[in-house]
């Protein structure tokens, strides 16, 4: 069974933010919601690396574990999705998430948050596939159309890989062999229990 994962090859990532705007474009994500972002570590010094980060769709997802209303579910493709009809915007998933993935629209009162929004691996939500209702709440459902997430498909240097975990791991390993270096798959040991197998 396909097990969808993201892998960001930090030797390739140049912080061009294509993944970020591709995501915005594909899902019409509003200002202030960043389903995907690029973080640069060691900024400005030798060893600087940029990593594109979004929901990693963890196995035994921490967000799902802490959700007070149990609004998460994992698809057969290993994608962690949630129902915005059930979400109450409590913010707990953000505390639990190792990757800062959950985003909340700021609502009127104090720091009170609207329903959580996050990367769906371009696979929509619980509504019927590729429907206006699904699009309105979760954005496009590319997986249902046989396409992979747009962020990875548009990545300028092919740094961001998305797809079946085994395949992208093998692509990555092959790169490491070809070039002779690599700094690992960011987030994998945290996100995937079976990562040691990769």
């Amino acid at each position: 069974m396909a097990r969808m994962k993201f892998l960001c090859d930090s030797e390739r990532c140049i912080e061009c933010n294509a993944c970020v705007t591709a995501c915005k474009n594909e899902h019409e994500v509003p200002w202030g919601i960043n389903r995907r972002r690029v973080v640069t570590i060691n900024d400005g010094t030798p060893g600087e690396r940029s990593i594109s980060m979004a929901c990693m769709h963890c196995t035994d997802a921490p967000c799902a574990a802490v959700c007070p209303v149990d609004c998460f579910y994992t698809t057969a493709d290993g994608v962690v999705l949630h129902s915005k009809d059930l979400c109450i915007g409590c913010g707990y998933c953000f505390y639990a998430c190792p990757f800062g993935a959950p985003q909340y629209p700021q609502l009127g009162n104090f720091g009170s948050r609207g329903k959580m929004d996050k990367c769906t691996f371009c696979s929509g939500g619980p509504e019927d596939d590729v429907t206006p209702a699904e699009y309105e709440k979760y954005g496009a459902n590319r997986l249902a159309e046989g396409k992979l997430p747009l962020c990875a498909e548009m990545c300028s240097t092919k740094a961001l890989l998305a797809g079946d975990g085994d395949i992208i791991a093998s692509i990555y390993k092959e790169r490491v062999v070809t070039r002779g270096y690599g700094t690992g798959a960011w987030g994998w040991s945290v996100a995937y229990k079976d990562a040691s197998a990769a």
């Binding site: 960043n34 973080v39 640069t40 980060m53 190792p98 800062g100």
Partner: peptide, 20 residues
């Protein structure tokens, strides 16, 4: 943790294992 260009500075935290 690193640097992000967006104003949401908590987005600069790339991985926080303490969430666990």
């Amino acid at each position: 943790a690193g640097r992000v260009s967006i104003p949401d500075k908590k987005a600069a935290l790339l991985i926080q294992p303490e969430g666990k």
